[in-house]
Amino acid sequence: MSAFGTGARLRLLEFVREPTTAALLLVLPPVVVEVYGEAMASFPALPGTTGDPGTTGRIVGALFAAAFLAGLVGLFQAVSARGTDERLHRCGAGRASLLGARVVTMATVAAVAATVSLAALARTVDVAAPLAAFGALALGALVYGLFGVLVGALLPRQLEGSLVLVFLVDFDNVLASGVLDVGGTVAQVAPLYHPHALFEAAVTDGTIPTDHALGGVAYAAVLLALAFVAYVRVAGGEPA
């Protein structure tokens, strides 16, 4: 537990000491929420959406900001683990502790990103169930944090991986929102499909759809297993 706690604390300090990433965490959500809101408000009759377009845009923007920031951290964790964690493992650090420290770092950033995104949304939108909305945002951020680990395992370069990730999150978010009518089956396999449905319901009417809650948790569990396999691959060696 001491090694795990030390590793998690060092990973978080490493993140906080990067002024660019720390500023991005605080600045990106408010900007994205307003940009998405204003952009969608200029199209009053979007297919596949109901309610006020500006509110819909801000909901989409808040989820995008939380998911992208967590995904970015997941990507960076996977890239930095390549080689580094294997050397630490050979020096005596347990692989479970090393992975746990990185997961805690990603989950912490996901929670902060969800908090900032929800606060940015609440400035202009009346959130019916704030706690449920936070949970949905945190779930979406966690899903993409784990997805970022997979991207980092397949594409171990921070710049290229970030560009791929921002495209995936944006496209996924649009599919999940129903703005594009691409068919129910395609939209339902999108990583943000369940978190978006949960978040929209929590913001607009304060409900928690059970099927989407279970589906989102199951999706995150599958990604966690895949992220573990990817971590072992990039860190080297076998689980220990």
Results as ranks from 00 to 15, higher is better:
Leu88Tyr: 12
Thr185Cys: 00
Leu88Ser: 04
Ala133Val: 03
Pro44Met: 02
Leu223Cys: 10
Ala136Thr: 12
Val149Arg: 14
Leu69Phe: 06
Leu146Val: 10
Pro195Arg: 05
Ile59Met: 15
Met106Thr: 12
Val164Glu: 09
Val104Trp: 01
Asp172Asn: 14
Tyr144Gly: 09
Ala133Ser: 07
Ser117Gln: 04
Phe134Thr: 01
Leu72Thr: 12
Val166Tyr: 11
Val217Ala: 13
Asp52Trp: 03
Leu168Gly: 00
Arg102Met: 07
Gln188His: 07
Pro239Asp: 14
Leu159Thr: 14
Val104His: 02
Val232Gly: 02
Val189Ala: 11
Gly37Asp: 06
Tyr219Lys: 10
Ala110Gly: 13
Leu121Phe: 03
Glu160Gly: 09
Asp211Cys: 05
Thr50Arg: 13
Gly54Ala: 10
Gly237Trp: 11
Leu24Ile: 02
Met1Lys: 10
Leu121Lys: 06
Leu142Ala: 13
Val182His: 07
Leu26His: 00
Ala22His: 01
Tyr144Gln: 12
Leu175Tyr: 11
Gly57Tyr: 02
Phe171Pro: 00
Val151Gln: 10
Ala93Cys: 08
Phe4Asp: 02
Gly37Ala: 06
Ile59Gly: 01
Ala141Phe: 05
Gly161Ile: 10
Ala39His: 03
His196Ile: 01
Ala213Gly: 15
Ala107Thr: 09
Arg90Val: 07
Ala129Pro: 01
Ala128Leu: 08
Leu223Lys: 08
Thr84Gln: 15
Pro191His: 05
Val217Arg: 03
Val31Ser: 00
Pro44Ala: 06
Ala230Arg: 10
Leu24Lys: 05
Pro209Ser: 14
Ala138Asn: 07
Ala133Arg: 09
Thr115Met: 12
Thr115Val: 14
Phe171Glu: 09
Arg102His: 06
Pro195Trp: 02
Leu223Met: 10
Phe171Met: 12
Ser177Ala: 11
Leu150Phe: 08
Val116Glu: 09
Leu75Ala: 10
Leu146Tyr: 14
Arg157Asp: 14
Leu224Arg: 06
Thr124Gln: 05
Leu163Asn: 04
Phe43Ile: 06
Gly145Gln: 08
Glu14Cys: 01
Gly37Met: 04
Gly57Lys: 07
Val229Lys: 06
Arg90His: 14
Phe147Glu: 00
Phe199Gln: 13
Glu238Gly: 09
Thr210Phe: 09
Ala176Glu: 04
Leu13Phe: 04
Phe199Gly: 12
Asp205Glu: 15
Phe134Glu: 01
Gly145Ala: 08
Ala225Leu: 12
Gly61Pro: 00
Pro30Trp: 04
Ser2Cys: 02
Ala227Gln: 08
Leu226Asp: 00
Ala22Tyr: 01
Ala120Pro: 00
Val149Gln: 14
Glu86Cys: 10
Glu200Val: 09
Leu159His: 09
Val174Trp: 07
Gln188Lys: 11
Phe134Ile: 00
Val16Met: 02
Leu12Gln: 04
Thr50Pro: 00
Val229Arg: 13
Cys91Asn: 05
Val169Asn: 04
Gly74Asp: 12
Val186Phe: 11
His196Asn: 03
Thr210Pro: 01
His212Asp: 14
Thr210Ser: 12
Ala22Asn: 02
Leu150Val: 08
Thr185Trp: 08
Val166Phe: 13
Val169His: 05
Pro239Leu: 15
Asp170Phe: 12
Val143Phe: 06
Val16Ser: 03
